[in-house]
Amino acid sequence: MARYILKRALILIITMWIVVTATFFLMQILPGTPYNNPKLTQSAIDQLNATYGLDKPVLVQYWDYLINLLHGDLGTSFQYQNQSVSTLIGQRLPISAQLGFQALVVGVLLGLWFGAVSARNQNKKLDGFLGVISTLGISTPSFILAIVLLFVFGYQLDWLPISGWGDSFSQTILPTLALAVTPMAITTRFVRSEMIEVLHSDYIQLARAKGIGEDQVIQKHAYRNSMIPILTLIGPLTAGLLTGSTLVENIFSIPGIGQQFVSSIPTKDYPVIMGTTIVYALMLMVMILITDILTAIVDPRVRLQ
């Protein structure tokens, strides 16, 4: 187990290096410059370039960036002057993480429930209804849903606050729901098909032949076996949430990293763009690592090596 985790950590570091390198050089070909104030003179620009090290050769800049990164230094934001990127991200990450976590938990739990209900009622009305819900959920982008929720529950019905973060838990409800629908829909479908397959397996037939009752058959045999493949979903769902959250945070004016990421792109705030990308990649990789370890724990057939 320890060796496995070590090996995976090594792979993680190499992947992160590739991500850093790729983003760094992509930044170089991003059109435009961080200076969009027409009043800036050329000498002022030269001076700014010198301060931020943008006048050095690209490879030197890259090297500096890597070295700083190893020290946990992600550079300084252009946009928010004198703010280090790590501080900026450090302030905003907990907000995004909370939102993402809430959405993942709500989405996956609802999906597990709906999927299992669907499978047990295969081809009945309830199954059909949940099928429609999940198809809608998969095909509607979360930002559209965010706008609809905001309009209906925030504006028309005036039940829930429509923006902000940190004042009350109720502020988190609409953005969480908007983000939770896609993972809910994907999990529902996945659980349904897994569960149907498991319910037709020989070992479920044998479990039924024991006379322990259908509820026990489902709880002790069907759930665990359909759960294992579902763990592999957590990685892709997280990736979806990361991208979904950028727009949803903007719509609900939530001061998370998604919102900051979006605003950093038109202003060419290279250090913020890079820092955020690295954090996203890291979060995704860690999620995948966690699910792989979880899979190995619940599935006795998986040997970690």
Binding site: S201, D202, Y203, L206, R224, N225, D299, P300, R301
Partner: peptide
Amino acid sequence: MVFQDPMTSLDPTM
């Protein structure tokens, strides 16, 4: 009942 295929008759996770 004893079933035909022992490779698939047992719950792999128990």
